[in-house]
Simulated scan of single mutants.
Amino acid sequence: MPFDLRFTKGQGTGNDFVLFADPEGDSELTPTRVRAVCDRRFGVGADGVIRAVRSANLDAGEGSLAEDRDAVWFMDYWNADGSVSEMCGNGVRVFTSYLLDQGFADIPPGGELAIGTRAGVKRVSRSVNGFQVDMGRWRLDGSDPLVRARELPVARPGLGIDVGNPHVVVALADDDELDGLDLGYVPILDPVPAAGANVEFVVPAEPLVEDGVGRIRMRVHERGSGETLSCGTGAVAAALAVRHWAGSGAPNDWRVQVPGGVLGVRMFQADDGEHVALSGPAELVFDGVLSLA
Rank of each mutant, 00 (worst) to 15 (best):
Y98M: 07
P157M: 03
S143Q: 09
L100S: 12
V94P: 07
W78K: 02
L183Q: 00
G110Q: 02
S85R: 06
G158W: 03
W78M: 13
D144L: 12
D176R: 15
P145V: 02
E177D: 14
N129P: 04
V163A: 10
R123M: 09
G61S: 10
L152S: 10
G130W: 02
P153K: 15
W78S: 08
R93G: 06
L65C: 09
S55C: 08
A173I: 06
G63E: 06
A60T: 03
S85L: 14
I107F: 06
R150T: 07
F131E: 10
F74L: 15
L140M: 13
G103V: 04
A114F: 12
L65A: 07
C88E: 01
D81E: 10
V169P: 04
D174R: 15
S127H: 11
D59H: 00
R69E: 10
E86Y: 00
L65E: 10
G142K: 11
E86T: 00
N57D: 03
R69L: 07
D141L: 14
L113M: 10
F104L: 15
Y98C: 05
Y98E: 02
Y98R: 13
L65Y: 01
Y77R: 09
G89V: 01
P157C: 01
V53S: 08
S125E: 15
F131V: 00
V163R: 03
A171I: 00
G61E: 02
C88M: 08
A114G: 09
G63S: 09
I115C: 08
G110E: 00
E67V: 03
K122W: 05
G110T: 00
D179L: 14
A56P: 08
V53Q: 06
G160M: 10
T117A: 13
D76Y: 10
D59K: 03
V44G: 02
D174L: 13
G142P: 03
F74V: 12
N79G: 03
D70W: 05
A171C: 01
V170S: 09
R118H: 04
A149E: 04
V147Q: 09
Y77C: 11
G142N: 11
A171K: 00
D68C: 12
F42I: 06
F104K: 15
M87S: 10
V72S: 14
V49K: 13
V121T: 12
R51K: 10
V170G: 09
P157Y: 00
D68G: 07
D175T: 05
A149I: 05
L172G: 03
L152P: 12
C88K: 00
F95V: 07
R51Q: 12
P108I: 01
F74D: 11
S55I: 04
A60S: 14
R93E: 02
A114W: 11
L146N: 14
D182R: 11
N165S: 14
D182S: 07
I107D: 11
Q102K: 15
R54A: 12
V133A: 05
S127A: 15
